[in-house]
Design a protein around this nucleic acid. Structure first.
Length: 229
DNA sequence: AAAGCCCCCAACCGCCGAATT
DNA sequence: TAATTCGGCGGTTGGGGGCTT
């Protein structure tokens, strides 16, 4: 009953692949293609399980893999896609030819996640970390008429500092509101409002329900780091 | 120079839906 | 229909290398 086992479980090699193993696997797949991963190690003369061979091929040996560090543009796109798709790394990886889901996942876990936390954003929800927990701050912002805020804790030491980006548009529909002000007040964090160029009327994030999904949103943060010593 | 710490990433693990017998 | 594996996925880990003290 049922299928045959994928491989002999005993005596299998584990851990890092040797150059010799890589060569055997590469040679076999280039010559024969991939019909069935279960048969690959046997036919290629490898003491590995099929699953391990598959992983090694997909993540390291595939000739179409793009080597080297991810670019800033790729990083921006990962953030954007993650905000929409969540931790669906294989889905995200389809937008990056030559990159693997493992590579993107690693990049997210070791760099982007850290960066977002530094910016006071929850890497899971892409929303400000203390939005729900800091009631005092929320109450303060509500008193000011701000219903939703973006918190940038690293600005705490900068008191009344105002940071303004010129000419950064949030979307085609919001060109009139192209100014973005990050206003750190009371030393608790920073609020984000959008200001109409003509009327100087301000809008909160509620004006843009899907703001975090908009790649232009992240432009607001460009250059922010330069303000710091 | 050496020890300790931190970061990165390759590889493993466990789970799940699909496929097979 | 049940039992079992396959293929694929996301989460996690541990070893190696680089950096700091």
């Amino acid at each position: 009953m049922g299928r045959q086992p994928c491989c002999e479980k005993v005596g299998l090699k584990r851990g890092p692949w040797t150059i010799d193993e890589d060569n055997k696997l590469m040679k076999f797949i280039l010559n024969n293609g991939i019909q069935c991963w279960r048969l690959v190690p046997k036919l290629a003369g490898l003491m590995r399980c099929g699953k391990s061979c598959r992983l090694r091929w997909i993540n390291y040996l595939r000739p179409d893999l793009k080597r080297g560090a991810l670019t800033e543009a790729e990083e921006d796109m990962i953030i954007e896609l993650h905000s929409r798709l969540g931790n669906r790394w294989s889905k995200i990886a389809t937008y990056f030819p030559g990159r693997t889901d493992n590579e993107i996942k690693n990049y997210w876990n070791t760099r982007i996640k850290k960066k977002m936390k530094l910016n006071g954003l929850d890497p899971i929800t892409h929303k400000p970390v203390d939005l729900e927990t800091n009631n005092e701050e929320m109450q303060h912002q509500q008193n000011l008429g701000f219903q939703e805020t973006i918190s940038i804790p690293s600005l705490e030491d900068y008191g009344q500092m105002q940071y303004k980006t010129e000419g950064s548009s949030l979307s085609n529909q919001s060109n009139d509101y192209s100014s973005c002000i990050k206003n750190s007040d009371m030393g608790l964090g920073s609020s984000l409002v959008f200001q109409n160029k003509e009327s100087l009327e301000s809008f909160t994030m509620d004006s843009y329900p899907n703001l975090m999904d908009n790649p232009f949103f992240w432009d607001c943060f460009t250059g922010l780091g330069e303000s710091f010593p």
